[in-house]
Computed example of a mutant assay.
Amino acid sequence: MNIACLGWGSLIWKTEALPVEGSWLTDGPQVPIEFSRVSDGGELSTAICLNGATVPVLWARLATDSLPAACEALRQREQIPAERTDGVGRLVVGESATGPLSQWARQNQLDAVIWTALPPRFALLEGRTPSVEEAIAWLAGLRGEQQQHARDYIEQVPAQIDTPYRRAIKQQLGWG
């Protein structure tokens, strides 16, 4: 089984337990991504944001032919609790699979695609997307190491993840 993982944030530069084969490629599918999830470290990380603008994400083939093993490796890398069922997204490419992601996967001769599927999170509310003003206020309110960590995160996210929030953060805070 030929399996790929999609990425748009720290997974790119910190793969850890994920068995990436080769390097991350920049010609991934268009996915609605935004800086919309306050992570445990305080940074405003990237997440799928269904009402966000689409950007071309990165992707890498995985050195496993087992979809359950690939999903488990991604779950561990993202530190998603085992009881949480919504943290890893997957698409198995088959005769009945349709849509842009299926087309992209077929063009790249993939049998399956996985990705981190954690939703936006703001003000401790899972599923809540901050407004751009709230996002900037959150980042501007961080101090010391936490602020530096948040800035480093934004600056390490690949440039092709060029979202409206990222442009506003750069304009107003000078980050990234």
Score class of each variant (00 low, 15 high):
Q76G: 14
S36N: 07
W138K: 00
N108Y: 08
T64V: 13
H149L: 04
A140E: 14
L139K: 00
L44Q: 01
L125V: 15
Q79S: 07
L58T: 08
L25S: 12
I161M: 04
T64G: 04
N2A: 13
I161H: 01
R77Q: 03
R143V: 09
A70C: 12
T64C: 04
E21L: 12
T116E: 08
T15M: 03
H149G: 06
G127E: 09
Q156M: 11
A123I: 11
C71T: 05
T116C: 15
K170P: 03
Q146G: 06
I169Y: 15
I48M: 07
P68E: 04
R167V: 09
G87T: 13
A140K: 09
I33A: 01
N2S: 15
A159F: 01
W175D: 03
Q156R: 14
A123F: 06
W13E: 08
I12G: 00
P100Q: 13
V92A: 05
W8G: 00
H149K: 02
R75M: 01
W104A: 01
I12K: 01
L110K: 00
L125I: 13
T85C: 11
L118F: 05
G52N: 03
A117P: 07
W24G: 03
P68C: 06
L118H: 09
T64L: 08
R106G: 11
T85W: 10
Q156H: 11
S10V: 08
S131K: 14
F122I: 12
P158G: 05
T15S: 10
A47L: 01
V57D: 13
G174L: 08
L101I: 13
R128Q: 15
A105K: 04
L62V: 09
R90K: 15
E126I: 10
V38K: 04
A69F: 08
A135V: 10
G99P: 06
L25M: 07
T26Y: 13
A4M: 07
P29V: 12
A70S: 10
P19S: 08
L67G: 02
L91E: 09
A168P: 04
E83L: 00
W175T: 02
D40K: 12
G141C: 03
S10H: 05
W59Y: 15
S66A: 04
S23A: 12
A17V: 11
W24R: 04
A60S: 15
T129R: 15
V38S: 03
L125P: 05
L91C: 13
R61I: 10
A117L: 12
L62D: 11
Q103N: 11
